[in-house]
Write a protein that binds this DNA or RNA. Structure first.
Lengths: 151, 151
DNA sequence: TATTGTTATACTCTATAACTATA
DNA sequence: TATAGTTATAGAGTATAACAATA
């Protein structure tokens, strides 16, 4: 039986975007797991690698994670010696989350996996097309993500 | 605090695609819920609106849903009088899932919601750009979704 | 009084395994 | 023996509510 002839869902750009998003997520998850990590860990390590000093609440907002989920995530990374909780002297309720040296190493490794996975996934697009796609997605996300903390 | 300056994740096309996918999903879910429906129901109704005669297994594969989840989904739609289970005479283990008249009405309503949501979401792109995006996503998905049943 | 982080608990969703009927 | 559909159950993941420390 051939759906291809009239698969109405495939005519909707929104559905395609939704499905493509799921697919990169799955492929990334597979690649990160194979490397002993996870998509989430990559997101956290990458977020903490920037200059901004992030608290758990900040992470929660930037990555759309429940605060209680962030606790468990940082617990793990702290146990693995990749992240340090440091009290924020300006507001002792908050932490400043910092990558340790081991965390920076872990991040470098996981960034390589990310790059390889992306290159494989977008290989069907020519370099110029990929830039075009990036720009369009950037515009679609502008003001909607990352929310808060930014600006 | 401004992340925008060095938010490394936003430089990855894969992450942008992932996030954009989540965003359309959320906006669609909101819109469908407001209309008394759901993204899933839309997907099912739209899939069954094609010419192919789909079984629950077919649906399960096309929409990446667990077979047990499909049972519950079709139960609901059958109770709502929108879908009929009809034994496949060629293989009495299978059903042929059919939209009823009420199902077609429900689909028409939900397709309008989908169209409106898409137009709002992609409003930032010019018509030509949106076609370009559609074509690129189509190429990225080719052979990866919809899997099975098709071809 | 409000907020950050934490814990314990409840809930939702999905997957697993076992069963019936058909092939 | 294998597959479609069904059911009951277990598990993963997430959200909710209550608490301690700080503002």
């Amino acid at each position: 039986m051939s759906l291809r002839a009239d698969f109405l869902l495939a005519e909707r750009t929104g559905v395609l975007l939704f499905k493509a998003g799921l697919l990169v997520q799955e492929e990334a998850e597979r690649a990160f797991q194979a490397a002993g990590s996870s998509l989430r860990t990559f997101m956290v390590l990458s977020a903490l690698a920037g200059q901004a000093e992030l608290s758990q609440q900040d992470l929660s907002q930037v990555l759309n994670l429940d605060p209680t989920t962030v606790v468990a995530l940082i617990d793990e990374l702290e146990k693995a010696g990749q992240v340090e909780r440091q009290r924020n002297p300006a507001d002792r309720r908050r932490y400043i989350l910092r990558l340790t040296d081991r965390g920076r190493e872990a991040r470098a490794a996981v960034e390589e996996v990310a790059t390889a996975t992306e290159q494989a996934f977008f290989a069907r697009l020519e370099p110029g097309e990929r830039e075009l796609l990036h720009g369009m997605l950037d515009r679609l996300l502008d003001g909607r993500w990352p929310q808060a903390v930014c600006d």
